[in-house]
Every structure is written in structure tokens, then in C-alpha cells.
């Protein structure tokens, strides 16, 4: 099985690579359309800012490529946000795989939402064997509004969707690569889809 991590100007590529390696999967990190298109599984990571990440993807025509993928793809953190329709961060039009709005947390508590928080109402293959109210590690200032594609729910200041799924597209707002046993289980589940 070939797993490709999409390489772009975002952090956590190395962390995702390491997490897969711990599962004995040697992933390929690439921004080559040919390599990404031929993968069995694709991971779309991301830490950083939405508009510059989108600009980078468009420049390399990776935006169309990602939208057109038919193999299972997992977006992580900023990856999830970019798979949505629109982000309030720098007023950014995103990939629109999920017709969902990404908003900034209101400043009623500390932002970013940083640390371990519970995920619940878990559904689908991604969360198979993951207990309700498991803890996952989050670092983000923007969130996907609760929506019909949610396969998990979480709460920080507001209710939001920490994981979404539609067809072959999966995404988590938290970092499975940093979420201890819960994250290991989730990545394993994704690899088995």
C-alpha cells in the first residue's frame, strides 16, 4: 500500500510521517501530481494559515488534484479547514469538498483552542474502536461549524465538528499524529479503509 503525504508549506508533515512510521508504514512525502494521483491513501496535513496555503496549492494545481481524488484522503487540522468551502481566516475561498463554513472562535475564552479535549458522538470507520469522550489533541483558532458531515462532535466556546466525512474524503481538526493512543487507533482505521 502506498501512502502519500501531500507536501506543502505547512508544518506537521514530519509528525504525520513519523506517526505512520510507528505503524510500520513508510509514507512518501510529495507535491508531485503524478505521485499523489497514484497513491492508495493520501494524507493532507497542515498547520499554518489558510490563504497562503490555498495560494500555494493553486499555484501547483494541487487544489484540483485533491478535489478529484477518488482514493481515501485524510485532511488534518488546516487540511480539514481547506477541504471546507470558506474560511474566515483572511477571507479565503477553500476547496469546497464539504459545503461548510470555517469560522474564528469568539474571544470568550483563550484562543487558540490548545490542548486535549473530548470528542463524542463518534461515527463511522474512522472512529471504529475509539471510545466515546476520548481525548484528542487540538491546536486551532478556526473551526468547522457543526454540519451534516460530522462524524464526531466537540465543544470549545461553541459546538464544532472535529471530524467530517463524505465519500472518500475524511478530515480531523485535531492532530491524530499527536493524540496518543486515540490518534494511533484513528490512523490505523484510516489505513484500513
Amino acid at each position: 500500500m502506498s501512502v502519500v503525504i501531500i507536501k506543502y508549506n505547512a508544518g506537521n508533515v514530519q509528525s504525520v510521517y513519523n506517526a505512520l512510521k510507528r505503524l510500520n508504514v513508510e509514507a512518501v512525502v510529495s507535491d508531485e501530481p503524478q505521485v499523489i494521483s497514484n497513491a492508495d491513501k493520501v494524507i493532507f496535513p497542515g498547520v499554518g494559515e489558510a490563504s497562503s496555503a490555498m495560494a500555494y496549492l493553486k499555484e501547483r494545481e494541487l487544489d484540483k488534484l485533491i478535489k478529484g481524488l477518488t482514493v481515501p484522503i485524510l485532511g488534518v487540522c488546516l487540511g480539514l479547514q481547506l477541504m471546507c468551502a470558506y474560511s474566515e481566516e483572511e477571507d479565503t475561498e477553500c476547496l469546497n469538498i464539504f459545503p461548510v463554513q470555517v469560522k474564528k472562535f469568539p474571544p470568550e475564552d483563550k484562543v487558540p483552542h490548545m490542548g486535549w479535549n473530548t470528542v463524542y458522538n463518534l461515527k463511522g470507520k474512522l472512529f471504529q474502536g475509539v471510545a466515546e469522550n476520548s481525548y484528542a489533541y487540538f491546536v486551532h483558532s478556526y473551526y468547522a461549524e457543526s454540519n451534516e458531515y460530522a462524524v464526531a462532535e466537540s465543544h470549545y466556546i461553541v459546538d464544532f465538528s472535529p471530524a467530517i466525512h463524505k465519500d472518500n474524503f475524511y478530515a480531523t481538526q485535531f492532530h491524530p499524529e499527536k493524540s496518543a493512543e486515540t490518534g494511533v487507533r484513528l490512523l490505523n482505521n484510516f489505513l484500513r479503509i
Partner: peptide, 8 residues
């Protein structure tokens, strides 16, 4: 350390 740890 990064290769080994699954927490931040």
C-alpha cells in the same frame, strides 16, 4: 524524540 513520541 519526534520519531518516538505520539504526544506534543
Amino acid at each position: 524524540i519526534a520519531a518516538e513520541l505520539n504526544i506534543p
